[in-house]
Design a protein around this nucleic acid. Structure first.
Lengths: 228, 228
DNA sequence: CTGCAAATTTAGGCGAACCTAATATCAAGG
DNA sequence: CCTTGATATTAGGTTCGCCTAAATTTGCAG
């Protein structure tokens, strides 16, 4: 049975903690207090306190001084928030003229306020998309996600042609810059050159040649279409 | 100058108090502690405490043991919330399949989470409507409202034909019932009969004859189209 | 293996927003 | 005019979620 302790009884704070911990433990590796504190812009003692409460609530497993991991229930709640967040982003971009670099903070507040009904209506209006405007996969309502396989642009070989499938989270500034280059999910790029030792990558997209630094090349996740 | 003390610094609670007080003081008549407590489902002492804080913040005028009134600034903040609420209701009904009896609680949460930008985008998508699905007027972004003149159905004379312009707030149950009768803003009704001493009103609408009790007849606000 | 720096937790506090119980004020009727 | 019941406020307490300062634990380096 579903031990779901009243999903709606979770406070905004708790929801934020769970989402943060989810983000910090891709494959179940424990998240540290200071990582969480940094991500949520809180002091470490605040996190320690909340972690204690949440583990007493059964939402996470805490090994003192070692780190925390979500329980199945915590993960379910976290995925619920991720689904909300990404669907809201997709909806705002599709129907209300938001750009992908401004949509995040709006979704960050709305995700705590929407009902399940509203989320599902938005999903339906969008045709139940599987990814948000950044290419991040949208968990299903029953709590499963599949992360599509992808490689950072930085890891492609010269001559590879690939589709950008996802742009890892970043600040507005960065996203806006990438948008001006046309580097967004769906774009097709071909690697023309690649400098060693973390140097820039030269690519061709939409008939234009771009040079992309290492930092950005790590953030652009691609699916290879054709090798040289 | 606008003394607006950071509009976004108001907490959800504060926003709810201001909205409640606005609702309770149609033309500046002071609202009592117990009225506010009842509307917000809080204890009177909680209200007393908050009223003290809000009057120190300059959002309302408090005459102890007498009642409270919004200051210009409090009124501005309240109208901002009312605008949000009504636009959100209109948006959800127009674009996301909500019915007028279910939309209230959703808006009640969202109104605290949306940004000004989002509110204005929704307004634009709706074509800047002047009323929400219940016929309640939507204050403008700069904080003015005009309540259209209207008469309760209960106050019409036999033979009058009128348009329903507004349905005063009520619970879902009541709204759902009225919807089944087709009695919503825009409906045209003709008064066929009217019993004295608060008795029911018999009307004709869409070719059908309905008998409406006094309670509902008070809630249906009409604009007379033609007298007998 | 010892000691030190970094990470973490505990201790103690604060403000927001609520509550109940006790007190104060008001206004209305005898 | 005074009592009394209703209404309002003050007093005192709780929980949530944050903070800073003071311990504690850990793990690495010499």
């Amino acid at each position: 049975m579903n031990t779901t302790l009243a999903a709606d009884s979770l406070t905004r704070s708790v929801e934020d903690y769970l989402k943060a911990i989810y983000r910090l433990s891709p494959e179940g590796r424990p998240a540290s207090t200071s990582e969480i504190a940094h991500l949520l812009e809180l002091s470490p003692p605040s996190v320690s306190g909340m972690v204690k409460r949440l583990s007493e609530l059964g939402l996470l497993e805490h090994l003192p001084y070692k780190g925390v991991q979500l329980t199945a229930e915590g993960r379910r709640a976290a995925l619920r928030m991720v689904r909300r967040h990404r669907l809201i982003e997709a909806y705002l971009v599709e129907f209300l003229g938001y750009s992908w670099d401004t949509v995040h903070q709006e979704a960050e507040r709305l995700e705590h306020a929407v009902s399940d009904t509203l989320v599902e209506r938005m999903a339906a209006a969008l045709g139940n998309p599987s990814a948000d405007p950044h290419g991040d996969p949208i968990p299903t309502a029953d709590g499963s996600v599949q992360e599509p396989a992808s490689t950072p642009l930085a890891g492609l070989d010269v001559g590879d042609t690939a589709a950008i499938v996802r742009v890892a989270e970043g600040d507005s500034e960065r996203l806006r810059y990438l948008a001006t280059l046309g580097l967004r999910p769906g774009a097709i790029v071909t690697v023309l050159d690649r400098q060693p030792f973390g140097g820039p990558v030269t690519i061709e997209t939409r008939g234009e040649v771009q040079v992309v630094g290492q930092a950005l090349a790590q953030v652009l996740l691609c699916a290879v279409r054709a090798a040289r």
